[in-house]
Design a protein around this nucleic acid. Structure first.
Lengths: 131, 131
DNA sequence: TCTTGCCTTGACGCCGATGTCAGGGCCTAC
DNA sequence: GTAGGCCCTGACATCGGCGTCAAGGCAAGA
């Protein structure tokens, strides 16, 4: 399978697949003319990569997962290295969640305050000019 | 007050204050020699800007808040334009929280699965080679 | 006067995953 | 042979809030 076909089957672009290759995630062989040649198993790998990227992993975190898949495991996340990355990312996500919840609270409080403030203004206006 | 002093008092850098000015958030006057001159009220403005940035607003979202402060209001978020931005940002944050919670769930599930998988392996090893 | 330290503007660097363009080769159908 | 469609490599662009460097002006003390 050439790069264009894999890209289409994986729902991405040739550029993206070359980028994954640069980062050691995908390993095509080469035809005599220099064209990249992918076997069917790479489709699964690319799907895994994209799922991990969508979950916020960086390309450089993903290698252990890909290696785990290539080693013949049924899932990419069962190997110790992958588990370590999973743990790290989970802690990171928990941090983001905590901070984001703080932000949410502040925003919500400010909105409430603004609404209350407007009500006060309205009351004042009503005192001056009954409504 | 010159830019260096305001920067220090606000816990930031001259570069940053010039950046805010580029985006219409801060408005110093100029000395005869071209130096930026800030009055004390700008310190409050800069603090407001930094608080909003820390809550994930973009510089271009911040203008209504600054305008609200300059208009003499007791808080930057009580004006209608600021409230609109607050609402937008709150919705955005809720979106992030939802997605991040999904991610967290997936990570957590994968970790659980990996641990279970390891236990199975251990059982298999124990069957083959009692422990 | 020379140094030191602040100020000015302008411009490039960063990070990360990917788009996009440039310049060129290979292959197939007409 | 030539047009079109795929492939190749290399490199610059994107976004945002700055850091940082360059080249130079201004002010004040030794």
């Amino acid at each position: 399978m050439l790069i264009g076909e894999l890209a289409e089957r994986a729902g991405t672009s040739p550029r993206t697949l070359r980028y994954y290759e640069e980062h050691g995630l995908v390993r095509p062989s080469r035809d005599a003319n220099g064209y990249r040649q992918y076997d069917d198993a790479e489709l699964r790998v690319v799907h895994e990569i994209r799922a991990l990227l969508a979950d916020g992993f960086g390309v450089d975190d993903i290698k252990p997962f890909v290696d785990c898949l290539r080693a013949g495991n049924s899932a990419a996340h069962v190997c110790p290295d992958a588990v370590a990355v999973l743990r790290r990312r989970l802690a990171e996500v928990d941090g983001y969640l905590a901070r984001l919840n703080d932000v949410r609270r502040r925003l919500s409080d400010q909105l409430d305050e603004a609404i209350e403030h407007r009500l006060e203004d309205q009351e004042i206006r009503c005192l001056m000019n009954p409504c």
